[in-house]
Design a protein around this nucleic acid. Structure first.
Lengths: 147, 147
DNA sequence: GGAAGTAGGCACCTGAAGGTGCGTAACGCC
DNA sequence: GGCGTTACGCACCTTCAGGTGCCTACTTCC
């Protein structure tokens, strides 16, 4: 019955570890920003919207309309944009305000929490811009050795 | 033939944006660390391995054996651990050294690049630990309003 | 009067991430 | 002589994030 004991201990350790991960705030954050469009939306709301996303001018976070975001993040589907905005609002990272004009307009804006999150994401961006070339170079030489 | 022109412009804008994303170093980095086990392995290699992962004691990055990592990250499958380690080695974030003892032992160790990446990840961790509770609280009140 | 913009909702579909299980080959322990 | 460890490789299977397409009502532009 007691199947090999050692295996059982491993199963239990795994269960505990999974429970630990489910609680881990860092993991939750990673799941959040790993979402394909989350960081893009955050960056867009932080930019002035004038040009390319990625020109993270750290100016005043400006409220933006749904259609404006849709145009700025040209690659996003309407479904995903809506879904992403909803989830960000849910987490208190952005606010959604409806303006009852004749065709209703909706504006989204970063909250303070959202701005602070964007700050750490810019940290990632900084690392990426200075070190990602090294990574790609390593990757190339590694592949060359294998092939 | 020219189907509604405006739609075509949108399609083209999307194509350009997709191309831009494919080039973006920040996105590549995100794809990298979004990998479920990458951050865990990085953190494990940085810890002293004595206890819970997450106790990110920033001591000397210590080389670790495959089996040691497997035990520390109790939730990881052997397949994923191997896959993750390979990809990290490929990117020059860790080194893999084979010691030809009687059952071969393999040790992994963070490179300088890997350590520097771990630093920015600790930035994420910091934000998560101070702000994630707020996020969860916002989420709860949002859900309460909807229900 | 068709095209376009306003902000989405709903349903279906696919690709890929990640998990599970099995096998190895040589050795140690009890 | 069967269980355990060492560091994986291979094949199958499930799940789901994310994409696509079609729908709404109302208005305005050309």
């Amino acid at each position: 019955m007691t199947t090999t004991t050692a295996a059982r201990k491993r199963v239990q350790a795994k269960a505990e570890y999974d429970a630990f991960l489910a609680q881990c705030p860092s993991r939750k954050l990673l799941d959040r920003i790993a979402d394909k469009w989350v960081t893009l939306v955050l960056a867009a709301l932080r930019s002035d919207g004038s040009h390319r996303v990625g020109a993270d001018c750290a100016g005043e976070p400006r409220p933006m309309r749904y259609s404006e975001l849709s145009r700025l993040l040209a690659g996003v589907s309407q479904k995903m944009l809506t879904q992403t905005l909803r989830s960000l609002e849910r987490d208190g990272l952005i606010t959604r305000t409806v303006v009852p004009t004749v065709p209703v307009t909706v504006t989204y804006e970063l909250t303070d929490l959202g701005v602070s999150l964007h700050e750490v994401i810019r940290g990632l961006k900084g690392w990426a811009e200075t070190h990602m070339d090294d990574v790609l170079a390593n990757r190339a030489t590694y592949d060359a050795q294998v092939a």
